[in-house]
Design a protein around this nucleic acid. Structure first.
Lengths: 262, 262
DNA sequence: CAGTGGTCTAGACCACCAC
DNA sequence: TGGTGGTCTAGACCACTGT
């Protein structure tokens, strides 16, 4: 068992009201913030900290659990506890659905990822007819049935986003939109070809902790929230023609919007 | 010690690979999802679960810690563990800075909260001259010094948002913008009076777990992420005139944007 | 194999809350 | 006062990782 780097970690303050495991977490957090442990670096092992601070193992584990909850560190079974690397973020610009970005052979996700030097993938593609949930139904103008297009997006092998598009069935049935690959420009290009010229999109953004299913699907580390984005596309007649429900790994995204000052 | 409601919680599966504390968390989560425990309801106490499942107390606490991390429950010392109530959310629309919403006596936050029937407050107001951080400086066109306006927003007594506005000092010094209360319409109205007609805003949105300081300032329960919004305001000459750095309790907000289809 | 984190036990004492 | 959660100990056995 290696000795601790000298000077990085100090002593506990027995007179403090602050719980011991919080004091240990504070010291580790400070060391990380100061760069004494860099991204991907291994923190001292549980056994080392037990010895250094003279506390029980559960106390040390409790400290790690605090830092995990903050998204600062990542435990790897059999290896150690590491400072969580910040993954490259994908920037979603508010003009990402502009017509000038369509009419190319590939989807917006693929084009953008290629440009950023990442390796994009789309999987678990599924196209189904369904009865919509109450929320989706209300947003789409209460259709009885919808076409649902599900897919997961990956960058360099890492899942970053899971999305479901819902379209009124009477609008999408027996069109290229019901095909797994709807063709160049994606479903928005197809919608316009079908006479539904797009007017605007509404987007709603929330952030929350993931459900167990989302943790699995997006392979999320603990301490990583999700961004939940619900987009509704309207045609020039004011009819909602698509609702897209997207869940993104929050550490992989920054959303950018440009607003006119009116 | 009261008996457990019959039938709500089942038995453990000793043949399962799933850890006991996860099985217990799964059962509680399912009961919450099904509505068997509603918002604000008290879950069975640790002692009751220890008896019901025949496990040690740490195992039960570990289950609760899982659910806390998911933001599902809230422990209150001396009282019990409760299903976390969903607070009313504040909807931020993308036209919230439109000129037509200014020229009133009160700030946008106050007007909007009054309309929604909430009791709004603004506190810890502080106006200071500072040397900007590297990031803020770059966004503002590298001024040597800036005016910083800090404030915290509360709804019905609950802190929901903490914001800092930065303005180039040469632009804001000795103007109403440097006053604690800049007057009707806020600093955007004052900027336009000073000849900086606003053209557009850029907004960047991230979500992450809060730092300990943010937990304190926003009184965040564990399992609640923050939304980090950075807005830059540009005048019609393309000059950045303000950067506003905002941290919001994610469970209190939904952000709404309208995008043209171009 | 030795070292790491993952799970679990069976206690102990404390601080907070409601009655 | 009794019940609640908060902290901490000192063990135990297991699963995973690397050499």
């Amino acid at each position: 068992m290696a000795a601790l780097p000298s000077g990085v970690l100090g002593a506990l303050d027995p007179t403090s009201d602050r719980a011991v495991f919080r004091q240990i977490a504070d010291q580790l957090r400070e060391a990380i913030d100061k760069g004494q442990f860099g991204e991907g670096d291994k923190l001292p092992s549980e056994a080392e900290l037990v010895e250094h601070f003279g506390v029980s193992r559960m106390t040390v584990r409790n400290s790690f659990s605090v830092l995990q909850g903050e998204g600062l560190v990542l435990a790897e079974h059999g290896k150690g506890v590491f400072v969580r690397p910040r993954p490259p973020v994908r920037r979603l610009a508010s003009d990402r659905f502009a017509r000038r970005h369509r009419d190319q052979g590939k989807s917006a996700f693929i084009v953008e990822a290629d440009a950023a030097g990442s390796r994009p993938e789309v999987d678990s593609l599924e196209v189904k007819e369904e009865r919509p949930s109450q929320d989706i139904s209300a947003r789409l103008g209460s259709p009885r049935r919808v076409l649902a297009r599900r897919r997961r997006y990956l960058l360099d092998g890492r899942p970053v986003e899971f999305a479901v598009s819902y379209l009124p069935l009477d609008l999408a049935r027996n069109t290229p939109i019901a095909q797994p690959n709807p063709g160049p420009g994606g479903i928005y290009a197809r919608l316009e070809e079908l006479g539904h010229r797009l007017d605007h999109f509404d987007e709603e953004i929330r952030a929350r902790m993931p459900s167990p299913h989302e943790v699995k699907t997006l392979q999320l580390a603990s301490g990583v929230p999700v961004i939940h984005l619900i987009r509704t596309a309207y045609d020039t007649e004011g009819r909602p023609v698509e609702v897209c429900d997207t869940v993104m790994a929050a550490d992989a995204y920054v959303l950018a919007y440009e607003l006119p000052a009116t």
